[in-house]
Amino acid sequence: MPTVLITGANRGIGLELARAYASDSWDVIGTCRRPDAASELKAIGGVEIHALDVTDDASVAALAKALQGRKIDLLLNNAGVNYRGGTLAEIDYGNWAKTMDANVFGPMRVCDALMDNVLASERKQMAFVSSMMGSIAECTGGSYMYRSSKTALNMAVKCLSMEFGAKGLVAVMIHPGHVRTDMGGPSAPVLPTESAAGIKSVLDGAKASDNGCFYNYDGAVLPW
């Protein structure tokens, strides 16, 4: 069966994605900062768990070393943060830097470190959990830190898709919906199971022509 590596797999969307792929008999590698505390991820059964802090170069390098020579059909970059602050006056520039590190630099560190693993696989897929809030065309204002990080991520992934597309890589961005998680809040309309199922469906059908595209979890193409 194919292998998927999911970052931030200990809770929220990442946890539901791990459950979805495990139930479909994929080999699942789940990463999180504290595997010892990932009780729900461990409870899935059969999931290989590794420690990973996407903001730490040494942590990313250690994961790459542990997985050297392993084929990864789908690298699913899910880990991210969202510091609150909607207006210009509410911006905390330290938190903005942390947001960019986790949401932009982190996924790119991971994809760089594991590129050989993905290109050695049959599927050669990378997916990046982005957000409609990163769309310039659909921007409604506010949330400077989070919005700008997802816009930057989209551009980075677009560049990635163009650099490695000739080698067979299919890299896509996915908006998971406004999901009822710790980040999305208890009143969010989309359940984690619904989001994960939609994301998996989109990626199951991804092909070369989807490289560099930005999709909603229901498969709709999103504007930039």
Rank of each mutant, 00 (worst) to 15 (best):
I174E: 00
G165A: 03
G69F: 04
C139L: 05
S135T: 05
D27K: 09
M1W: 01
N211Q: 13
A18H: 07
Y83N: 00
V118F: 09
G85C: 07
C139W: 03
W224N: 12
K71W: 05
G106R: 03
G94K: 09
D56H: 10
G46M: 10
A208Q: 10
V179D: 03
F164H: 15
G134S: 06
P107A: 13
D182G: 04
T87Y: 13
A188Q: 06
D27P: 01
K207H: 15
V221E: 09
K42T: 15
I72E: 12
Y144F: 14
M132E: 08
T55D: 11
A113S: 11
S135P: 10
V110F: 07
A137G: 01
G106T: 02
P223K: 06
S195W: 09
A89C: 08
G134R: 09
E40A: 14
T87L: 10
P107L: 13
G8Q: 01
C213M: 13
W26A: 09
R84G: 07
V221A: 14
T181A: 01
Y215T: 06
A206M: 12
T7L: 15
A152I: 01
M115W: 06
N117M: 02
G212F: 11
Q68T: 11
M126W: 08
I13D: 00
R19W: 08
F164V: 01
L203Y: 02
S39W: 12
C111H: 05
I136C: 02
G205I: 11
E122R: 13
A102Q: 01
A220G: 12
T193Y: 05
K42F: 06
S23P: 02
A37W: 03
I199K: 14
G85Y: 04
N211C: 15
Y144S: 02
S121P: 02
I49M: 13
Y83G: 00
A137E: 06
P35G: 10
V202W: 04
A208N: 04
E40S: 15
T87E: 15
H175R: 10
E40H: 09
M162C: 03
E138K: 04
N82G: 11
K98Y: 02
P223S: 07
A171I: 03
K71R: 15
K158M: 05
L41P: 14
Q68M: 08
L75Y: 10
P176A: 11
N95K: 10
I29S: 00
M115Y: 09
D112T: 14
N95Y: 01
L63M: 10
A137M: 03
F164Q: 05
G14E: 04
A196R: 03
G30Y: 06
P189I: 00
N211A: 10
S39M: 13
V28G: 00
E48D: 06
M173K: 14
L191A: 08
D218M: 05
S148G: 14
D27H: 11
G219P: 08
V157F: 14
N103S: 09
I49V: 15
A61F: 01
S209K: 15
L76K: 11
D36Y: 05
P223M: 04
V179I: 10
E122I: 07
K207T: 12
I44T: 03
C111T: 15
E90M: 08
G177S: 00
A37T: 09
F164D: 07
C111K: 07
S201V: 04
D112N: 14
T140M: 13
K98P: 05
K65P: 08
D53R: 07
V172T: 08
W96C: 09
N78W: 04
N95I: 00
V60A: 09
M1G: 06
E194D: 14
D92F: 11
L169H: 10
